[in-house]
Amino acid sequence: MNSMKENLRILTYEIPESFRGATVEAFLRSKGYSHHVIYHLRSTEFEGRPGLLLNGEKTYTRKILEPGDRLQISLLETEDSANVVETNIPLDIVYEDEDLMVINKPAGLPIHPSMGHYETTLGNAICYYTHHTLGYPHYVNRIINRLDRDTSGLLIAAKNMLSAAILGDMVKRREIHREYRAIVAGDFRKISGERPGLYRSADRTHLTVNAP
């Protein structure tokens, strides 16, 4: 296990001419920072470093910007998701950077802990990975898209609150697209002209396609 280190994401921006006279908050909002993230930056420090620095000095969200100013953001994770325990379940990570992971979820693995699946979900696996591989003390469950338990496929997990806010907005704007592939069996040569019916099971855990 790696020694624990803080999950600190530092971002630096040089203010362009187009934001002359704008506030720090207006600039951050243009970059996808939500009100929640901005409030977090105002209220947290790391080893004496404020969440917001302008030209090397502590600043506030109402501060007026000038072209060439350097705005530094220190985004520190300080909370954990309640009731998510770590479980050593292997992860098939197909892409990872400082802000997100793309994970190939196998069929049969639920995404979020729930009754009957308290320790055997993708969330539990990412929690373990965050603590033992990345070495971060805090884990917040930020899986962006959804797949049914029995569906395999790619899922995006945000690694900090800023990437979660940006990716969440992309989902709302339908800028993240999914493509499904299904394996079917049977003789479909005589089927034509009608759309198959889609049915959900009584316990809402399975979808069935009935061809005419």
Results as ranks from 00 to 15, higher is better:
Ile15Arg: 09
Glu96Thr: 08
Asp97Gln: 07
Leu109Glu: 14
Lys63His: 09
Tyr139Ile: 10
Pro16Tyr: 05
Ser114Glu: 11
Glu98Lys: 12
Tyr136Gln: 01
Arg178Val: 06
Ser81Asn: 05
His40Gly: 01
Ala158Gln: 01
Ser201Met: 12
Ile111Ala: 04
Ser192Pro: 03
Thr151Val: 12
Pro67Tyr: 07
Ala157Asn: 14
Arg174His: 04
Arg149Trp: 08
Leu109Asn: 15
Gly193Trp: 03
His40Arg: 07
Arg181His: 11
Val209Gln: 03
Leu154Cys: 06
Pro16Val: 00
Asp69Ala: 11
Phe188Ile: 12
Lys105Trp: 05
Ala26Trp: 03
Leu65Lys: 03
Met4Gly: 10
Glu98Phe: 03
Ile38His: 01
Tyr13Trp: 11
Asp150Met: 12
Ser192Thr: 05
Thr44Ala: 04
Lys190Ser: 15
Thr208Val: 08
Gly21Asp: 03
Pro50His: 09
Arg142Leu: 11
Glu86Leu: 02
Ser34Pro: 00
Leu155Arg: 12
Lys63Arg: 10
Ser30Asn: 01
Leu53Arg: 10
Gly68Tyr: 14
Asp187Phe: 04
Met4Asn: 02
Glu45Ser: 13
Met1Ala: 06
Ala165Leu: 09
Val84Asn: 09
Asn83Arg: 14
Ile89Trp: 00
Thr59Lys: 11
Ser74Ala: 15
Ile93Gly: 01
Val209Trp: 02
Ile143Tyr: 04
Ile89Met: 04
Leu122Lys: 09
Asp69Tyr: 07
Gly108Lys: 07
Val84Arg: 12
Asp80Ala: 15
Glu14Ala: 06
Thr78Met: 13
Arg146Met: 13
Glu175Cys: 00
Gly56Thr: 05
Pro196Trp: 12
Glu17Arg: 10
Glu6Ser: 15
